[in-house]
Every structure is written in C-alpha cells, then in structure tokens.
Amino acid sequence: MKEIVAIIRPNKMTRTKEVLSALGFPAFTASKVLGRGKQKGLAGEVSFEMRPELLSQKGGMKYVPKRLISLVVNDEDVSLVVEVIMRVNRTGEIGDGRIFVCPVEDAIRIRTRERGKAAIN
C-alpha cells in the first residue's frame, strides 16, 4: 500500500475529486493548506482582492492557498492515481503543485478491525 499526498491548486479540487471518484477512488482526505514554493506566491491563486503593496513586495506573497489531498491505495493503483492527478492538475505554469508517494506499513479500519488491503477497499 502507498499513501499519495498531492498539493494542488484550489480551483482544481472539484475536478480532481470527480475524476478520482469516477475511477473508483472516492475516499480521500482533503484540507485547505497554505504554503509557497520557489515562485514565492502567485497573486492569481487567491480569490480575494489584495492590497497593491502586497503584490509589489520584494519577497512575493507570504503564503499561497492550496489544497492537500491524501489517499491510500494498493500498490498496483499508484501509477494510475498519480497519472490522473497530474493530468487534471497540470497547467504547465509555476504553482501546479507536488505529489508525494509514501509507503504504508499497515491500515486498520477501526469499526471492523480489518487490516491491510481489506481496510482500504
């Protein structure tokens, strides 16, 4: 099993959710996060007006709003899920996000005590 963690643009969240669900991966955890990469912020990523002095700061924006999604999948599904997330979220512009794939030792469904693949399926 692997955990796939993706940091994506907020405006791509709905489409990402729709495509993952259509492919049989409806369950994931999502949260609003703030961060910044090498670009030091993108004014076009926010849905509110910014004071002009914030846009002209030498260091860029302090943080950029993003969405973080996390899902645990079977090893054989990793390539498909990563490819789908990349296709939906790739604009070719700075700020498209990152995907991390991490090993998962075990998973346990609390209600039934199922473990491993049974706990995530």
Rank of each mutant, 00 (worst) to 15 (best):
D106S: 08
P103L: 04
I85N: 01
V88Y: 00
T91R: 13
A118R: 12
V82D: 04
E93T: 12
F100Q: 08
E83N: 12
E93H: 14
R87K: 08
N89G: 07
T91W: 13
I94F: 09
E105G: 07
V101P: 09
D96E: 04
E83K: 15
R87G: 05
R115L: 07
R87T: 01
V82M: 03
I99C: 05
M86Y: 11
V104K: 06
R111H: 14
D96G: 02
T112Y: 15
A118C: 11
N89Q: 04
D106I: 00
C102S: 07
D96T: 02
R115G: 06
G116D: 00
E83G: 12
A107L: 12
A118W: 02
E105L: 05
P103E: 08
R113C: 12
K117W: 03
F100C: 00
I99R: 04
P103H: 05
E93I: 07
R109T: 04
D106T: 02
E83F: 09
V101C: 04
R98W: 12
K117T: 04
T112R: 14
V101I: 08
I110N: 14
G92V: 13
I108K: 08
A107G: 12
V84A: 00
E105P: 06
I99P: 11
V104Y: 02
I108N: 02
G95S: 09
D106Q: 03
